[in-house]
């Protein structure tokens, strides 16, 4: 990494790399108005928190929503999606997706569930199901 990469990263996106792991310098918060965390106070949405469209909520085509908001709503149209999937499918960084989802929750468009910690799984049946499911793959 060089001083140059920080200074020029924005002008020539994709041209500076730390190495194979680290991508180019980006400033993804442009999309979120500079916010780095979801608007509502509290813990950020877990990567495997599940996002469901609120049934009967207005369509995705209102002016309050930016294109990225609409993309996210579209992606969970057919089935419940995890935060990680939305980020991968929308090709947006996770942090940006969290912020956008915070907006959508406030607007009543989606609901986001807290994942159940494995320690609180109701019974062994679920894990048995997972094992059988893996065998059958």
């Amino acid at each position: 990494m060089t001083e140059e990469s920080t200074a020029d990263g924005r002008e020539r996106p994709g041209s500076e790399w730390y190495d194979n792991e680290a991508g180019p310098l980006v400033r993804p918060y442009a999309m979120t108005g500079g916010r780095t965390r979801p608007a509502p106070a509290g813990v950020p949405f877990d990567l495997i928190a599940l996002v469901t469209r609120v049934p009967g909520a207005p369509g995705a085509d209102t002016t309050v929503l930016g294109p990225e908001h609409r993309t996210l709503i579209e992606l969970c149209r057919t089935e419940t999606q995890s935060v990680a999937e939305l980020a991968a499918d929308a090709d947006l960084p996770v942090g940006v997706v969290r912020v956008l989802l915070g907006d959508l929750v406030e607007l009543g468009r989606v609901s986001v569930s807290r994942p159940v910690p494995p320690a609180q799984l109701p019974d062994e049946r679920i894990l048995r199901e997972v094992i059988d499911g893996l065998r059958a793959l």
Partner: peptide, 23 residues
């Protein structure tokens, strides 16, 4: 942009029957 307050309902039970496990 959307206002930043009034967000108590940060996490609601979306689909309590759906389960996600992380490895």
């Amino acid at each position: 942009m959307v206002s930043q307050h009034a967000g108590q309902a940060e996490t609601t039970d979306a689909d309590s029957s759906a389960l996600a496990l992380k490895i």
